[in-house]
């Protein structure tokens, strides 16, 4: 019987790039899993946590815990949301040992999408085809990792080029770009420059926020580079 995985698509995917969630579901089904989507899901609480609004982060985190209480695997198309749920959320319940234990149990079952494929599903190739020149924009709290690159290697027709400084911050930073738009723009333009110099036609990322930030910059600058999430690449035929 197929193992069951529960999708936590993230609020950003839900509202801004739902095709990423659909792509992720397709890849997981192709990998032999039964995929479910629990309607009550909303957000992981990261924006509140980063802003220092701990009670609100806890409240929203509790809602997550309730929603996914009995899930065996929760797969997330975002390393920062996965880190929030896996690492930071239990710490928010430090003053409530039973809630913390509960959070820790569930957090051990939360998986970022690429790590789930490599470590749980243990597959690095899914018959995907994406015949383009591609560069990877790493997620900045995690330095350049081998996992996503390995998955891209298994994609037919894909030509991979490395940009300089792939894990330098793109300037999205959640609320940051609204409060410090000039600084964010400077950082985004630096990454745009690096991507253009790499010669890639597509930039692959793991964070929807970063992809949106870059997409906006490419459109404003009228560059032809396309932004795409790793899940979409792996779902392509």
């Amino acid at each position: 019987m197929a193992k069951r995985v529960s999708l936590f698509v993230t609020c950003m995917v839900d509202q801004f790039l739902p095709k990423v969630g659909l792509a992720m579901a397709e890849v997981l089904e192709r990998a032999g899993f039964a995929v479910e989507f629990r309607e009550p899901q909303t957000c992981c609480g990261l924006p509140a946590h980063q802003a220092g609004c701990t009670p609100q982060a806890r409240a929203v985190g509790s809602h997550f815990l309730k929603t996914f209480d009995d899930a065996d695997f929760v797969v997330v198309p975002s390393p920062t949301c996965a880190a929030m749920l896996g690492r930071d959320l239990p710490r928010l319940f430090a003053d409530d040992p039973s809630a913390q234990a509960n959070a820790q149990t569930l957090s051990a079952r939360v998986w970022e999408f690429s790590r789930f494929l490599l470590e749980v599903a243990q597959i690095d190739s899914l018959g995907a085809r994406f015949p383009h020149r591609v560069t990877l924009s790493d997620t900045c709290p995690a330095p350049a990792t081998a996992g996503p690159r390995k998955l891209l290697e298994g994609v037919d027709g894909l030509e991979y080029v490395e940009m300089t400084g792939p894990s330098e911050c793109c300037g999205f930073g959640g609320l940051f770009r609204l409060q410090y738009p000039q600084e964010a723009e400077t950082m985004t333009q630096k990454q745009v420059g690096r991507i253009l110099r790499s010669g890639a036609t597509h930039v692959v990322g793991l964070e929807v926020g970063c992809l949106l930030q870059l997409r906006g910059a490419f459109e404003r600058g009228q560059h032809a580079v396309q932004t795409v999430h790793l899940a979409e690449v792996l779902a392509s035929r």
Binding site: K19, G21, F37, L212, E219
Partner: peptide
């Protein structure tokens, strides 16, 4: 939010339909 998204923020526009709708 999706219905009343300001045109000025076109670069980071939300999708026409949410994931849950599409699902």
């Amino acid at each position: 939010i999706r219905s009343f998204w300001p045109a000025a923020w076109k670069g980071q526009r939300p999708a026409t339909k949410s994931f849950r709708q599409l699902w």
